[in-house]
Design a protein around this nucleic acid. Sequence first.
DNA 1: TCGCTTTAGTTAATAGTGTTAACTAAATAA
DNA 2: TTATTTAGTTAACACTATTAACTAAAGCGA
Lengths: 202, 202
Amino acid sequence: MGRPKKEDSLAQQDVINAALVCIDKEGEAALGVNRVARELGIKPPAIYKHVNGKAGLRKAVVLNIWNDYLQCCQGAVEGIADTAALFHTGAQAARSYAQNYPGRYAVMMQYQMRPTDSEEAVIIQRSLRFFQQALQLDGLSEAVLIDCMRMVNASIYGFLNREQMELMTLSRSSDASYEVMLDALLVAIAHIKKTAEENSTL
Amino acid sequence: MGRPKKEDSLAQQDVINAALVCIDKEGEAALGVNRVARELGIKPPAIYKHVNGKAGLRKAVVLNIWNDYLQCCQGAVEGIADTAALFHTGAQAARSYAQNYPGRYAVMMQYQMRPTDSEEAVIIQRSLRFFQQALQLDGLSEAVLIDCMRMVNASIYGFLNREQMELMTLSRSSDASYEVMLDALLVAIAHIKKTAEENSTL
DNA sequence: TCGCTTTAGTTAATAGTGTTAACTAAATAA
DNA sequence: TTATTTAGTTAACACTATTAACTAAAGCGA
C-alpha cells in the first residue's frame, strides 16, 4: 500500500524538536504553525501532515516537555535516601529546569492539562507522584496526603512562576528565599500531619 | 483650540469597561483590539484614538483589574484585629475574586509587570503591602520579611492558579485544602521567624 | 519493468488578528 | 463664520491559522 516511510522525510518528533528550538530561541510566543514551519524549511500547510494544527502541535510539545522535565527531576533525586535531602534536591531540580528553559517551562505550565485526556492524565499522575515520593508521605490518610501535595505543588509552582515573572527584584537573594521556603514547607507538612492525627484521635 | 470633549464620545474608561465585559463573557483570549471594538460598536482602528494598541489596552485593563482586586481584598479585611483572622479573610477574598472573575484573574496574573514602569510599580508595592500588613510582620529583619512574603505570595498565587487550571479534581474538597494550607503557612512563618532569631543570637 | 496508490510537500485561497495612512464629518474655539 | 481639532471611517498591509486542490516522488504489487 503505497508509501509508508521515507528515510529523510519529517516525522512528528522532528516537528516537536523544531518547535523546542523556536521556544528556546524566542520564547513561548514562538510556538506556532508558521514559525515552526519556517524553522523546518517547509511551508505552513505541510505541518498538518505531521501534527493536528496549532492545538495538536501545542499538545505534542507540552507532553514532550513534561516528559523531559520529569525525567530531569527523577534523575536528580536518584539514590538519595534522606527525606529532607530528597525534597530539597527535587525542588532544586525543578527550579533549575525552569531557569535553564524558561520558554519551555512557561509553555508547559500555561497549558491547560485535561484529566479527561488519557495521555495528559498519565503526565498529571507522574507529576503528582514525584513530590509525593520525594516526601515519602506513605502512611497518611487520603485527605492529608492531598492537602500536603496541593500545598507543596502550589508553593513551588508559585515561587518559580513569580520568579519567571521577574517579580523577585528585591535585594534579598531568591536562592536563599527558596531554601528558606523549602525548609518551612517541611515544617508545615509536619504540622498538617500532627493536627490531622490529633483530630482523628479526639 | 478646537474640540476638547464631547459628552457622548468614548473615553478610555469606556474602552476598559468594554474589555472587561469581553473578558468576563469569553475569557482572557477576548482581550484584543478587534473583539473590544466590536463590543463598543466601532471599527478596530478607532480604538487607537483612546488606547495605544493592543499593548496599551492590555496595560490599561490590567491596571484596572489590579486596582479592583486590591480594593476588594482591602475591603474584606477592614476592621479585623486578630492576625490569623486577618490573614484567612484576606486570602479568602483573593480566592473569591479569582473564582468570581476567572478571566480577569488570568489576565491580571499572566501580565508581566515591570517594576521599571511607574504605574505598575505602584501596584506591585500595594500588592506586596497587602499580605504584609495582613500578617503584621513588623519588627522583622528585611531578609526574613521578604522570605515570608515570597512564600505566602507564591503559595496563594500557586494554589489559585492550580485551581483555575482545573488541576484540583481529586475527591478532597479544595476549600478544605486551602484552609489547611493557610493554617500551615502561619506555622511556617513562625518557624522562619524563630530560626532567624536563633541564627542571629548565635 | 510498469503502473497504482499513498503521501510529503506545494500553491492558492479564506478568515481572522493587529496596525498604519488617508480621509470624513462633526463639534468646538476663535 | 471660519478654522481647528478629533472621533470615527475606509482601505491597505502584514501577520496568523486553516482548508482545498494539486504535484511529485516513493513504495507496493503485478
